[in-house]
């Protein structure tokens, strides 16, 4: 085959350029510390990293959501704890008052204490969170849930249970409307076996009236209902408790997942320095060999010997 000047120079320069390009690419990897610089370097890897980033952002948002509702739940817990002890005290007082050996004036003084407890219960029901929102008002956060209108306690909040997003497509209830906690309670009448829906505040007011009027039978029937109220409040307590531990569990899961993601991200995108450094050495060597050999061969010509 004929070797021509043009042929020789073209092929030599092309090869040197290719080698240079490879060297520069490896150098770029080493200085950025990442395997890929743009998607075309490894499209599948780039896609996986992008999705991973998106998932990490989502995951941390869910963790934030859980953190934010925790304080509300703590307020619920505190309030309901308080309500449980208040109802417990009302029960104790009512048991005393039910005893016919108590005089009307004794019962009247019990009534006064019960009235105080009812007011305390309303305070607890109307409790507000750190952001000023009423805790037990359902969605009507800016509306005081319970207020007295014409000697009756009315509920002005909404009946909705607030939810938040805790994971992809998963919701969790975090709200407790006042009507569910301090509203109607199902009371089973032991004598008739039937179930009756009684309102908490109404029942408590009935108890007060019965004590003030010193009506023993009324006091005893109200007592039975107060017992149901107390049971109901204890159930609410465990509901909140269960929710709070679920939140703890969810948070741990999300934190673990975050850790896994970070580990995966590092594995996917970080450069293997050792391999890259030795690759650079080999490629540099090839380039230098190409350059030196070209310099030597370019000088060879018959004209050097024709004088």
């Amino acid at each position: 085959m004929r070797v021509t000047q043009a042929g020789f120079y073209n092929s030599a320069t092309n090869q040197m350029q290719e080698q240079q390009a490879k060297v520069f690419e490896t150098q770029a990897q080493l200085s950025s510390g990442k395997k890929i610089d743009k998607p075309s370097d490894d499209p599948a890897l780039a896609a996986a990293l992008n999705i991973l980033n998106s998932q990490m952002t989502e995951n941390s948002r869910y963790m934030t959501n859980l953190d934010r509702v925790f304080s509300t739940m703590q307020m619920q817990e505190t309030a309901i704890n308080s309500a449980v002890s208040q109802l417990s005290r009302v029960k104790t007082l009512a048991i005393q008052g039910a005893n016919d050996s108590y005089s009307a004036s004794d019962r009247k003084s019990i009534a006064v204490e019960v009235k105080e407890l009812i007011a305390g219960l309303m305070d607890v029901a109307n409790i507000r969170g750190t952001d000023g929102a009423y805790v037990f008002s359902g969605f009507n956060q800016q509306q005081e849930p319970f207020s007295e209108v014409d000697d009756e306690v009315v509920y002005l909040g909404s009946h909705d249970y607030q939810k938040i997003l805790v994971d992809e497509g998963r919701f969790m209830e975090v709200g407790l409307p006042g009507s569910a906690v301090f509203g109607s309670v199902n009371h089973i009448d032991v004598e008739t076996g039937g179930t009756e829906a009684v309102d908490m505040f109404t029942t408590l007011n009935q108890m007060v009236t019965a004590l003030e009027d010193s009506e023993g039978d009324d006091i005893r029937s109200a007592l039975a209902k107060v017992d149901s109220l107390h049971e109901h409040m204890i159930t609410q307590e465990s509901t909140v408790g269960a929710r709070m531990s679920r939140v703890d569990g969810l948070k741990s899961t999300l934190e673990e997942r975050d850790f896994t993601f970070k580990k995966l991200q590092s594995e996917l995108e970080d450069l293997d320095y050792v391999a890259a450094a030795s690759r650079l050495k080999n490629q540099t060597l090839a380039l230098q060999a190409g350059q030196q050999s070209f310099a030597q061969l370019a000088n060879l010509s018959l004209f050097n010997y024709i004088r």
């Binding site: 004929r2 021509t4 000047q5 042929g7 024709i306």
Partner: peptide, 24 residues
């Protein structure tokens, strides 16, 4: 393209060594 160029060069390009020999 490099191969095609190479082929063309083999046929049509000037080889200085060849020309030097022809000169002599």
């Amino acid at each position: 393209v490099e191969q095609a160029e190479d082929q063309r060069n083999q046929i049509s390009a000037v080889s200085l060594d060849e020309e030097a020999a022809d000169l002599l």
